[in-house]
Design a protein around this nucleic acid. Structure first.
Lengths: 335, 335
DNA sequence: CTGTTAGCGCGTTCAG
DNA sequence: CTGAACGCGCTAACAG
């Protein structure tokens, strides 16, 4: 490995002079600088990452923690985060918790030890909030999603999210306006469920919370749930799924059991992932501005890192969502 | 930040004694060890990542480079890699190149500077092979996919892949056996195209390479291609897409233009992603053992890192693929 | 069993 | 403009 020392030796100068030359320090003779740069090029020198990290107390890495790596919504989000980070020449260390509290804590710990310069957490577990606050004491931390119990920490941990309580409220309202009455909610997201509940209450409808269960969030779960739902004594006319993958799973399963979507039962999702328009029937969903969220999160961290080292302005940013009407919902009142 | 020094001070011992106690060194008095551990706990000490990295010359991080973060095949693959890595207590720094040679080179450079202990590259660009070899000189590097031009470097860079040349050969053969004659291939993967070509040649069929084009690999591209194909003078009876997302895009587009799948035209994909069975029609595809590939790649790196520091055994591992027959292909000979 | 010393590779004073 | 000296926080070799 080529080090400063090697260059210094070859150039007959001290290491510190080399360091300065390489880092664009002004106070250095043009000639010696040129010479040093020339030698560095010849030797194909590039500074040791670990040494720089220790000396500079920075890694140029941002940690991003998501629940799963193979969940569309998150990977689309991370793709946007990566793009934005790249503009500032930061790398990204991507961690998935597989929904485990313990794993999440492990990442928090690693980050605390100086593995990254800043962190973006999605879907933080309530149990880890204190640990996260301690982390936020050392490096900038942003939370995406699961606003609920994190709100109280907003001073130290800015939250960027889409207003899915409102989004799911509007979606449910849309169903109610079309004449649906027996609507069930599927998923494990508090915020989304609460929007659903608000809409249902406003119309004096009964709220079935049987399918508001932890772990209900994937295509595979949707497949299982389809059977469970088909076996229900009282069949719903519409199903609100907390995300598109769940909806696709449910529909696939219901179809296999001979149900027509949306004729027999309407199903809609949220997040509006790429494939929801390709699916048959195309999925009525709620658009989440992933790109805007990603960019905002990165921008906040970068600002903190580059400038004042303090969060400013509003620490809780909610982006609006948009109802995307497609073909997986039936109008009831026409009958 | 709490350092060894702080603990040493409190315990009235030297830093090195603390270091030993904390690292489970045998040669240390039980009493002093207990005392040190106790203090460390009190102070909530955890070693500085960057300092350890410099001193140990390791980061406990493996770099994984993929073309895109929002491509199903890769994220499923990475999810498996992560799982396996976790067993060895390694983290993963995930980099996406967005198919840019320049970005890929940037990651190689970062890795060379000591950012990671080992690296897994997928879809390596030919232009970066020399740079990659230099990297492989310092840390273990594994290549996944795009076996073609990398083969010659197999001594230094083990390759783990699925045999998709064979897989696409079998898929094409299956179509031919069902009586299809005018089959087109869509995609930008050399290996998959060559399997297609071999099957076609064996049956003395014409090979249309009009849709073997760089960049053809995504759902969005599939949507565009659907139009292009529908406008063709001579309509194909079957389309082989290099991956499932592309196939889903093509089908979605063709459907919109009034085509029936598979009655008017058969379409199949490769990779067998989760959703291909949920799609309508369910997709005939080629199963790739992602989990096995991921685990094998990690295992090779871990072995290198933990033991002999040298690659052994075969350096080019090809897993078998499996033809998954579903409902997106029509039998022609029945007519 | 413990402490001293040196070093990992780089950045940064602060004299000269 | 240059270099010596020290620090980042931890590990390792070697005395004692």
């Amino acid at each position: 490995m080529v080090t400063l020392k090697d260059i210094a030796h070859r150039a007959n100068v001290s290491e510190s002079t080399v360091s300065k030359a390489l880092n664009g320090n002004e106070n250095i003779n043009d000639e010696t600088r040129e010479n040093i740069l020339e030698i560095a090029r010849e030797l194909d020198y590039s500074p040791n990452y670990r040494a720089q990290a220790l000396a500079n107390k920075t890694t140029n890495i941002i940690g991003v923690v998501i629940p799963r790596l193979d969940r569309y919504y998150y990977t689309e989000l991370v793709q946007h985060i990566k793009k934005r980070l790249q503009e500032s020449n930061y790398s990204l260390i991507l961690c998935s918790t597989d929904k485990s509290i313990k794993e999440e804590k492990k990442y928090i710990k690693n980050f605390k030890r100086g593995q990254v310069d800043g962190a973006i957490f999605t879907e933080i577990h309530e149990e880890n909030c204190t640990a996260l606050l301690e982390l936020a004491d050392k490096i900038p931390v942003i939370g995406l999603g699961n606003v609920g119990y994190v709100t109280e920490f907003a001073e130290q941990i800015p939250i960027v999210d889409s207003d899915l309580t409102e989004g799911s409220y509007r979606l449910t309202k849309y169903l109610l306006d079309l004449g649906h009455k027996n609507i069930i909610f599927i998923g494990d997201c508090e915020a989304r469920f609460s929007g659903f509940k608000r809409a249902m209450k406003e119309n004096d409808n009964n709220i079935n919370d049987k399918f508001f269960r932890s772990g209900l969030d994937s295509y595979q779960e949707g497949l299982k749930l389809g059977k469970e739902i088909a076996a229900l004594a009282k069949q719903p006319t519409a199903i609100v799924c907390m995300n598109d993958e769940l909806a696709i799973g449910v529909i696939t399963s219901l179809k296999k059991q001979g149900k027509k979507i949306p004729d027999d039962v309407s199903v809609c999702g949220m997040d509006n992932i790429d494939l929801s328009q390709a699916f048959t029937p195309s999925l009525t969903s709620v658009e989440v501005p992933k790109k805007a969220i990603a960019q905002k999160a990165v921008d906040i961290i970068m600002k903190f890192l580059s400038e004042e080292n303090i969060f400013e302005g509003s620490n809780q940013i909610l982006f609006d969502t948009e109802l995307i009407i497609r073909n997986s919902v039936k109008k009831m009142y026409i009958q």
